[in-house]
């Protein structure tokens, strides 16, 4: 091949790669732009501070849904993160073969289960015995969705911690459980947080599993054993309603949801970048 031909191919291939990269970013930019265009006009102070107005009245907001989504995500995180992170640590560190193999397989299958099925599951094990829809049931459903993502990313991140770290700590006469909790986990922290953020972003936008667990509510939340509003549910309800004002509010809700996920991810990055980080 002549040098000129090689340079030519180089330029063409670089161009193709750059184009692919640009196309990857495009959908997010288009979605975000569209949301801004459609939703920005409905975003105002009332939207963040007020309850929905009764049908037929203009104005009002989705404050209850914003708070509801935050509560549901916190509930899901409280249930799912400890289980997921410690489960991942076990999968990465265990010398046993069978249990980790089974757990990994189950996690991967669970990751592929449609979220509406997980909603039905939560309905069966929590809503039916309690005889009512509740925030708890919604949080539980979201936790189940988070679990496989958190388990598998935690496992991968713990695996990335060089064995020299473990050996150095063990050789200092530190008991193995402390080596794992105080040396290995902190070293994997940055990567685990990324996985956690992905999981939170994923569940914050879930609608299907909340339909018959959290159920939705047009008022402020009234306890964890009561139905609770959530942004995705409210967006769904408003988007299929026949009112223009509600459509605009649905767009604003979608914009808020994206903004919320963005802010949470950013905050987690800022909070955890204060100390030295290990594996990324």
């Amino acid at each position: 091949m002549t040098p000129a031909a090689r340079r030519g191919i180089n330029i063409v291939m670089s161009g193709v790669a750059a184009l692919a990269a640009a196309l990857v970013v495009l959908p997010l930019l288009v979605i975000f732009g569209f949301l801004l265009w459609q939703g920005a006009s409905a975003v105002n102070v009332d939207f963040f501070l007020h309850l929905p107005k009764p049908v037929g009245e203009a104005g009002g907001g989705m404050a209850n849904a914003i708070v509801g989504t935050l509560i549901l995500v916190v509930l899901a995180a409280a249930l799912g993160l400890p289980l997921g992170i410690f489960g991942g640590l076990y999968l990465a560190e265990s010398r046993d073969r069978r249990l980790p193999w089974l757990a990994r397989f189950v996690a991967d299958v669970l990751n592929g289960v449609p979220s509406i099925v997980i909603g039905i599951f939560a309905y069966t094990v929590i809503v039916l015995p309690m005889k009512r829809f509740s925030a708890l049931a919604g949080g539980f459903a979201l936790a189940v969705i988070m679990l496989p993502i958190v388990v598998r990313t935690s496992e991968e991140m713990v695996r990335l911690v060089p064995s020299s770290m473990r050996e150095a700590a063990l050789a200092l006469g530190i008991p193995e459980w402390k080596v794992l909790l105080r040396v290995v986990l902190p070293t994997a922290r940055a990567g685990i947080i990324t996985g956690v953020m992905v999981a939170i972003a994923r569940v914050a936008g879930e609608t299907a599993p909340l339909l018959f667990t959290a159920f939705g509510n047009r008022f402020w939340h009234q306890g964890l054993d009561q139905p609770i509003a959530a942004l995705p549910l409210q967006i769904f309800a408003y988007a299929i309603a026949p009112y223009d004002d509600w459509h605009r509010q649905a767009w604003a809700g979608a914009l808020t949801l994206i903004g919320l996920v963005f802010v949470v991810s950013l905050a987690a990055r800022v909070v955890t970048s204060g100390r030295f980080t290990g594996v990324r």
Partner: peptide
């Protein structure tokens, strides 16, 4: 050890 291995965090 052979390679210096201070704890990065």
């Amino acid at each position: 050890f052979q390679k210096p291995n201070p704890f990065p965090t």
